[in-house]
Write a protein that binds this DNA or RNA. Structure first.
Lengths: 213, 213
DNA sequence: TAGATTGTTAATCGATTAACAATC
DNA sequence: TAGATTGTTAATCGATTAACAATC
């Protein structure tokens, strides 16, 4: 069976398509051409058609794309039709902020548990979920069908915790710790390195002022 | 005066170089070759040399790169030797989490003010900074040499607030609102779309399981 | 049917990797 | 000097854009 590998460049654009299509759908727009979407999103119509055609012919010549069905298809491609249970490890400010964010639930991401090494935080409640001590992490992962672990702990403990997660069958790690994790093939890691992001911003601020006369 | 434009692909890798070099420096490593760094970071030595040479010849044939000075140079390129004042707009969970994060200060990013439209949050203290009402935002930006605004507000108000920021001389927006901002050329926007990031993770989880036999 | 717009192939552009002469 | 490793040019690879035949 032939497996055409989709590049991460394409994958990275799918959530943005999904967002625009969702908004169009909510506005009651029924159909859209790659040309119109191009104007809205400021990417080329050609790229839009190439991107969609990686996954099959969702459009119709002379008509364009049906917003509702394209929205649903992209959601399916992104796996948003499936439920993904997640736990948050690290009940600090960032971890609690993510736990309190309701919108993930709407996309099928279900907040199941929260863990922290600090005994003072254990027992606290974040949106109905009690913070558990770290020694319950491994059994909890195994017994509660947890797909995704959100790592909001200092980098000093992140590598060690990631190894435990992998050993207990986690499928993906959403890593907010400022360190590169080394996981076996097949385990997905998505890094959110906030300070890297801020540094890019800083570069571009300074580049711009020196470019200007 | 010739301006060689550095691609965002290169810029995006600089913070990671910076991080590895900082760790090497802390470990007391004095010099490193592109070959060694390649092994550590899992990118090609060729790419490392190309990347660095966009900014000048930091190395020495037969020796490699001096860790300390390369670290400092990259820091300078990223503008980390300059102070950047920032405000956070939106004192919800995420805004407060970012305000409480101390490590930005170490890199020259100084937390100067915080704003929220909700009167119940006004007056609250986040790491020594009092939450101010939105009607003080514009004068505060102008009078306190604010470079960067961190947007942690709902997307419904983000576009409007961004326009105000631009009108009052902001130079960069670190945008956590799930919407695309339209700003004039020269204003930098760095988006952190957390739900997009989570969707990518979701895609890769599902891709992997269907690829596997 | 005529017009519109896709799906897809071909051309272009840019980024990554390889190779090697320069040089410490 | 000989060996090591950069800086840089050339080759390759992959992603984006353009073009157009297929088709609704």
């Amino acid at each position: 069976m032939e497996v055409k590998e989709i590049s991460q460049a394409v994958i990275g654009r799918l959530p943005r398509y999904f967002r625009y299509l969702g908004e169009l759908k909510d506005e009651g727009v029924e159909r859209i051409s790659s040309q119109e979407l191009s104007g809205l999103m400021k990417v080329t119509a050609s790229q839009i058609r190439q991107d969609f055609n990686n996954f099959g012919g969702f459009g119709q010549q002379g008509y364009g794309y049906n917003v509702e069905s394209l929205y649903r298809e992209i959601g399916k491609i992104l796996g948003l039709d499936k439920q993904h249970n997640f736990v948050i490890i690290g009940a600090g400010n960032l971890g609690r902020a993510l736990g309190n964010y309701m919108n993930f639930e709407r996309r099928g991401f279900i907040f199941k548990g929260m863990f922290d090494a600090n005994p003072e935080l254990v027992g606290k409640d974040v949106r109905g979920v009690k913070v558990m001590p770290m020694d319950q992490l491994e059994s909890f992962i195994r017994e509660n069908d947890i797909d995704i672990a959100v790592l909001t702990i200092p980098k000093t403990s992140a590598v060690e915790v990631a190894d435990k997660l992998v050993a207990n069958g986690i499928r993906a790690i959403w890593n907010f710790a400022h360190v590169d994790l080394n996981v076996p093939e097949g385990i997905q890691v998505e890094n959110v390195h906030l300070s890297d992001s801020l540094m890019k911003l800083s570069y571009n601020i300074n580049r711009y002022s020196s470019d200007m006369k």
